[in-house]
Amino acid sequence: MTQPFHIVVCAGVAPDPLQTLEPVSGPQGPALKNEMMLPAVLDPWAAHALYEADHLAKAIPGSKVWLVSMSPKPKLQQVLMTMAQKVGFELVALDGPASGFADYLQVAHALAEAIEGIAGLQRDRLLLFGGWESAGRAAGTTLALVGERLGITEQFQAVDVLRVGDDGLLEIHERTDGGKHQVSLCGGPPALLGWATGNLPEPPNSPQTGMVNMRTLMPALQKARPVGVSGGLQFTGATLPKQQRATRVVKDASVDEIAAELAAWIRG
């Protein structure tokens, strides 16, 4: 019989991917123009990790999910009113910047410290989940650093599949080139899994789940500890990529037309 897991999901917030973003230089270094005004979402890769955590916790009775997030408190609260309807979790909130321009090492240190402070968390049951990559411009490095801080040596990135055997072994599929997966067997927790997209759809909104989450969500937000991550990493500049999305809506174009346009674009 598999032991219940203690699953900790690290997830920050990121601007809603539909928004137009513009880097600006502020007194603290690079920032995104109007970032606090724009709508935000839970970082999409981390959100997939959360769905996988919820799925696993439901499959292994007795398991528990914590969501650990460092984000500006008002923004996190707003995002969680959407996420809290989808999956069950207990929140551990840190009030700090969500900008990917923060020093990843300092962010990782704060997250690791918060995880170590979770009452009742058992290391021999710990699965540390997060996003393999990040829409928050943090390049997905933070999770690995958190794992190192916590001394978790079994780390897997770009995970699409996790299967738990009756013997407690973890079968983990990591993406490799060419659409293939590297399959690993891990003896058990503690382990770190940086999720790619997984295979689960976004769960529907459930008012009951939301109500259950609210019992812990608001108290956790209210006692969110402010975290300063200034200094450390220095940026020499930030610019938009030269290649930018140019959106057009064309319906009912033929395959030949699409191919011809792509070929013309490749030829430059």
């Binding site: 009113m81 959407t82 909104n205 939301g210 109500m211 609210m214 209210q222």
Partner: peptide
């Protein structure tokens, strides 16, 4: 904490 606003 006195009211919950659920979007979507």
């Amino acid at each position: 904490g006195a009211a919950q606003i659920w979007p979507g």
